[in-house]
Design a protein around this nucleic acid. Sequence first.
RNA 1: GCGCCCGUAGCUUAGUGGAUAGAGCGCUGGCCUCCGGAGCCAGAGGUCGGGGGUUCGAAUCCCUCCGGGCGCGCCA
Length: 567
Amino acid sequence: MRTYKSVLAEHASRVLQVPETDVLALIEYPPNRELGDLALPCFRFARTLRRSPQEIAAELASALQSVDAFASATQAGGYVNVHFSRSQAAQAVVDQVQQDVDGFLSSRRLAGHRVAIDYSSPNIAKPFGVGHLRSTMIGQAIVRLLEADGSETVGINHLGDWGTQFGKNIVAYLKWGDEEVVRQDPVRELLGLYVRFHEEAKADPSLDDEAREWFKKLEDGDERAVQLWQWFITESRKVFDETYRLLGVSFDYYLGESFYNDKMQAVVDELRDKGLLTHSEGAEVVDLSEWNMPPCIIVKSDGATIYATRDLAAALYRHDELGADRLIYVVGSEQTLHFQQLFKVLERMGRPWAGDCRHVAFGMMKYNGERLSTRRGKVIYLEDVLQQAIQEAKSIIEAKNPNLADKDAVAKAVGVGAVVFNDLKNDRMHEVDFRFEDVLNFDGETGPYVQYTHARACSVLRKAGLKDDGKLTVDAYTQVDDLTWNLVHHLAQANEVFERAVDDLDPSQLARYVLDLCHHFNRFYHDVPILSAAAQLRQERLALTNACRMLIKKVLFLLGLEAPERM
RNA sequence: GCGCCCGUAGCUUAGUGGAUAGAGCGCUGGCCUCCGGAGCCAGAGGUCGGGGGUUCGAAUCCCUCCGGGCGCGCCA
């Protein structure tokens, strides 16, 4: 929909004879709602127009009086503040949300694009810990955001299914493993074997040699090695898929590292043909000193390739074979340099789309201030965290709403929602010190708070007899009090927040937005009677409630949370 | 040593050059004969890490220092 900012910008731009985009960038929300619904500081125009900000603001204020959408325009120092015509705005906003939430949120700016998103990407035979939550849920949210903005997406799980660690896994399993025990709980058992390997290898370095031999066998296609490796993958996948099912996460492709084994020679050949490879300390590298980066190693001194080579092959595959015009990697910030190198090498290889590659980095997850370490067996299983949160939700339901139908399904939605939202609401670059007390708290700025608000809105609408996809038409809003207006005004900002979230690949903006929206709704709900209002008002308030319900549900979906109608 | 990221209330944080720095948790005190109290309201709590600068205006931009994190060729 047409935003109020652009209406203001258009008029101000015409009056002042300055470009509309310049005006648009300056428009802000006044710090105090009595001042107005939008504000335009005029200080910036003073120099070019050779007039005082106050004078400019005064001129604008009087010119904007006549604009239909504005109820008033006043000068306040160097600012001009406008109030919207409330009844007109409320009617338009509520109607448009109900008509088409998707269209209200998005103008489908990415139509025609196809974006590949690499997210989650856990390692085979390793636990899926809380740390993986970040890549998984930020990635999933980005997929939904981009799709909502019109893009096609290709979600890729780049499983860590190759590398020398599998030699260790095989050795440990053959020495100390038991098939039945592993089958019971594959990931935990394999991790135990892996940790034991590292402990014993300290005293007996020959184990490392054995591990190397077994990995070599795997590379050479040794039947036993391949069979064990595939078994590890199968068992790990079962466990991962269980977690993905719980989280509601899915992928278009599971393409692990091993998928590119036969695609790396072509990369090496191309780099060599293009004269980008140089010999250095026994290895072959792409020199990046011109860009102040260390060289990117392509072929190790033992002749083997390395992850950079693999990632290059993967990037080419995603672009050339999967048809993506833009690549996104949702990977921890410790790999920032690697991706800078990767994108630079792609550019030097003559791939113009290298400029459209993005590394969506995020801070590290810690526990009690300490780094989690798979190798030392220091792991918090995401599955455990989710189950605890679900238990917590279940006991709250038993206490507050014991007659609820589908208690288990709701407990799952709320418990998982709490964990997911908790991770999505903050700036992803921040380090996270994982604390159960935060995740298991369902009050305040949390997923359950948003879900609760949604359920509340559903409840009112249900009592009013509104059908599931019903729409309530209102011809004109009569009285729009402050609480109602604050809610409408916030609703109207959905589109600009959505676009910022897409542009920044930052789901936390939407998480913050929906928290604010819920807060405004709860205040409205608390103080403004809906069902008991007189017929006309009742209809207006129900329509507004319905619009909120729809938008909250939509945003929860984008963030990967369910929206139960009762809880 | 070099590079990147982070530093805002006891804790977690919002804020992408504009007006009096907003929230949540925790704490204190209110609000269910009224649409769901996982809620609402109020209170206490801030030298926006320190210091310089740019600007009419800086938590925000630049410089510098301090504290923390992550990287810095054959792991991914």
